[in-house]
Write a protein that binds this DNA or RNA. Structure first.
Lengths: 216, 216, 216, 216
DNA sequence: CGATAAACGAGACGGTACGTCGCGTCTTCTG
DNA sequence: CAGAAGACGCGACGTACCGTCTCGTTTATCG
């Protein structure tokens, strides 16, 4: 997030004077932004459109976000990650089982949509490290975290070695998914995700995958 | 390419009258476009900037490309892969040796520059499939091809199994490099590339890596 | 005046509840308004500027004046004529002596400041008759009044004819001073004022002036 | 004038490159500006209004005038002084006859309209001496010039003394007219102008006026 | 060889979105 | 409750860029 949660970080020096910023408007504005974004695309989206749809003034938008780009980033960042719930990870007893179950439990379509939107703001990521960090934390990292936690649990179980470079491995799937969607523009389907698990992740942690259909 | 080689396809109706189009300017313009693209990103890039840097008039650009987008596509597509020479791949006798040698033999700096360009136009990738394809072909695929060829050679040697998902594995490094640069904004150094080889690629092809640096 | 003396007219229905309006703030605000008016002109003047300079809130201003225009009107109307004291007019025995003495006795600098303010709100004069009236009463008319009274006294003395168009003549100096300052942007110095008296006013009342400085 | 005739003043250093500025658009734009000015007043006038009415882009306006204010000034300045023709001054044989004839020969209504418009831009006069000079030259000075020429002719005829301060006297009528219109907000009618001539101008040049209706 | 026609560098054009700022109102908190 | 602070809806400002069009010049082919 860019602006919204800086509030308490910068606070306490000028205690509280004047009318408070009405943070209920944030949701209206961000929702309007996502709506317009979906309808007209990033280029077609206009600040005035967003403002008027949210029944807000342009000034109110610019008081909260420095530019159209940042608004879009926050709009995307604030899309609730309803599809990921770290407290309810699958627990099948084996790392492979957990990873496969993760595919089912999260909406691939939802992920696709988020990727598409994220692509719209990618150009800014390279110009503003802070925004890149925000986008990363909001969209990509949660998915990496799922993998990281599943692997750590496998380490605890003694299923895999503690020597494994879990940090790198946990980013393989997000990375490959983004790459395949944005650059290669191929579909990210279940088969691809399974092949990543069996062909890359499990071998990398020393669990040579047993190819069921192909006996060496 | 979008426009450049349409020339003769559209021709023949008004054979040849007046001054001929000076196609030596194409290169100047495309180079200028790449420069500006790398410096300011797609959104920040301006037709006037490109024109003035190429000492060309705007009309000359629009006579050749229909829009900013198509210019960028061609600029990316025409980017010479000067840093990669498929006919002179390293050949050390082992897959690991070849992969490690690849790190040295290719200019990380040049790769950085292309990543910078890629980052600059990332926002366009999702909006223009044609651009995404051009970018993929020009920047990413050549690097994937190197890995693919090295692995296929290892298969021929009998070093690794033919069952390996070479297609996916060959994209792991480009993918992770892009991800690390653009999203995570960490440096892509030799150590990272080596850890990818030893921690991900080799295990995935059944070559359990011997951790040389880790002393028990 | 527009608003200030409406206070008691509107009152009496809710006799006294809560804190009373602090009318000492009026002077601060009006002074601030005049300052800003002189510095930046009517268009450049900002309600926030006036409020912050008077250490007042915008609400306080709008509780007292309905708009920027009315505030300026009252500010001009309340401008104290500290530099002119009708009860202490010069009395030299001749009209020329009185008029010349008037030059000395009034602060040219103070007049300059008022002219500056006048210039600042000149654009409003034609748009708001009420403001024009206020400006006239506060700035111009007092000076015209001095001349009018001096001439009437000269009529009483029998020095000049009662037929003279005193009303018009008394406005010549204010008019020419404003014109010279605002439109011609020449300095209004003693020499100019003397030449007006000797070259225009006195001839017009039948006192052919003796050109003292011109030696034949 | 502000911008329009700077063209040749600054010229010759960058000979002529690129498309020429289409000065036929000047008239369209200035006319549109005057139209909008008359319909909505200075405050209500909008750059977009003027641009769209002239079927021009905002950029075109701002390429020629630095601000709304300057556009208005030029619009006013370029109003043709169709009512004044220095080559066809009245010639009745006497100064009084000429001055009186001048009243008839120029449209009072037209003068009123110009004054009204001028008032709208007066606030800028005090901030920009150059603009003040331009406005003065375009609107006020021509009228002063008429009086100046008539008086000089009277000097040549020997009707009045060469000692008269013609420079000051020639500005009395413009000054008083502006003053009466803008500040006093009284009508400028024939009677007032005649009283100025007989009560101020003629006495000042030594031509004691013969009050026809009132015998001393 | 001169006429013709297109391409060239330069830059003005109509349009449109941007981000800023001011007005007059509304809201929050303090005295 | 008045007052200071300041956020709010609104809307004009002046800037910048897009893609097109118009200059005057240069370069090629045709008559």
């Amino acid at each position: 997030m860019t602006q919204l949660d800086h509030t308490d970080a910068t606070g306490e020096q000028t205690p509280k004077l004047g009318r408070k910023r009405d943070h209920t408007r944030d949701a209206d504005i961000l929702d309007a932004a996502l709506e317009v974004l979906a309808e007209t695309g990033y280029d077609g989206m206009t600040i005035d459109m967003v403002a008027s749809r949210a029944k807000a003034g342009k000034g109110t938008l610019y008081r909260r976000w420095a530019s159209k780009g940042e608004l879009v980033i926050d709009a995307v960042a604030c899309m609730k990650n309803s599809d990921i719930d770290l407290s309810r990870l699958p627990d099948t007893g084996t790392l492979r089982g957990d990873l496969i179950a993760t595919i089912k439990s999260r909406s691939i379509e939802d992920g696709e949509k988020k990727l598409q939107i994220m692509a719209g703001l990618a150009s800014m990521l390279s110009r503003d490290p802070e925004l890149a960090e925000a986008a990363n934390a909001a969209i990509v990292e949660p998915r990496a975290t799922v993998h990281r936690m599943l692997m750590l649990r496998a380490v605890d179980r003694g299923e895999i070695s503690a020597d494994s470079d879990i940090e790198t491995l946990s980013h393989i799937t997000p990375s490959m998914v983004a790459y395949r969607s944005l650059i290669q523009r191929k579909t990210v389907d279940r088969a691809f995700l399974v092949s990543l698990i069996d062909g890359v992740l499990l071998p990398a942690v020393g669990l040579a995958h047993q190819v069921p259909s192909r006996v060496g």
